[in-house]
């Protein structure tokens, strides 16, 4: 029983990490209409920036904050230089472009920092014990961060004009433009918000894996895809729920089936979701696509 509870605790933490990453990806997918394959690298950039900041003397919190802002800037820059010029040509060119950018970013980082893993500067703290279950503080922080990120995004989407514009653009780009929404500006803001969430997720990924490599985001990306698809593309709440399913599923699979296939469980869930519920298991209202 305690092994089961322990697994659930780890699963919640893993799910939180996946969830924050999935929020950013599903948001940009919902509004822009294509899957950003360079999204994983945004997480990597965040982790590298934090490492760089701390090794050059910044306090961890400052370095982390700077890293998140850097990632938002990178997301905006990629949109401006590469994605905007391809608007109106369908999803395929954007998809291929994002893959190209993914390899560029990944390998620029490797050119700069080499292939050796760098330690993510997270303080070592003794885990708390609740009954017979261990709760490492890092995982508690990851979980709390996910809850806060979800709450802030909820307020942003539901309670602000900006959120309404984003949802309008996601529903119908042309119609939103007709009703006076400046869709280009809305898309830019979407990339910034997506980037901020990616930055946050990068910190969480670094803290969880305790080190930083150039491929960490790319390797993690399919897991995020799984959560996004399970939740229904463009559905923030669905993405979070999907992430919890994937996270807990991965931990349960690793504990009770085989730790070698942890990632494969996530992808199997993804493929199953694609085949049986292509609109997501938690699909709520109408979204783009058919």
């Amino acid at each position: 029983m305690s092994q089961f509870l322990q697994t659930i605790v780890f699963g919640l933490a893993t799910g939180s990490l996946i969830g924050v990453a999935a929020l950013g990806l599903t948001l940009s997918y919902g509004v822009t209409g294509f899957i950003n394959f360079a999204y994983g690298e945004l997480l990597t950039v965040s982790a590298f920036s934090t490492w760089l900041g701390v090794t050059s003397g910044l306090p961890l919190v400052v370095a982390a904050a700077v890293a998140v802002l850097v990632v938002a800037g990178v997301a905006l820059l990629l949109d401006h230089a590469f994605y905007q010029p391809l608007r109106g040509r369908g999803a395929m060119p954007l998809l291929i472009t994002s893959i190209g950018l993914s390899f560029v970013l990944q390998n620029v980082l490797r050119m700069g920092f080499g292939a050796d893993p760098r330690p993510f500067p997270v303080p070592l703290v003794r885990p708390w014990t609740i009954g017979s279950v261990f709760v490492p503080p890092v995982q508690a922080v990851v979980f709390a961060t996910a809850v806060i990120a979800m709450a802030v995004l909820h307020v942003l989407l539901r309670r602000t004009m900006l959120g309404r514009r984003m949802r309008a653009t996601a529903e119908n780009d042309a119609l939103a433009r007709l009703s006076g929404v400046r869709t280009t500006a809305t898309l830019r803001v979407t990339w910034v918000v997506s980037g901020l969430l990616a930055g946050l997720a990068g910190l969480m990924l670094g803290a969880t894996e305790t080190n930083v490599t150039a491929t960490m985001g790319f390797v993690f990306l399919p897991v995020v895809f799984a959560a996004v698809i399970l939740g229904g593309i463009g559905q923030p709440y669905g993405a979070m729920a999907g992430a919890m399913v994937v996270g807990i599923g991965m931990e349960l699979g690793a504990t009770y089936l085989s730790p070698d296939y942890t990632l494969a469980f996530a992808f199997a869930a993804l493929v199953a979701a694609l085949l049986f519920r292509p609109h997501g298991i938690f699909r709520g209202g109408a979204t783009r696509g058919t």
């Binding site: 472009t97 893959i99 190209g100 950018l101 993914s102 390899f103 560029v104 390998n107």
Partner: peptide, 9 residues
Amino acid sequence: FVVIGMLLV
């Protein structure tokens, strides 16, 4: 790989 990625773009 940077060259290959850039070429795709």
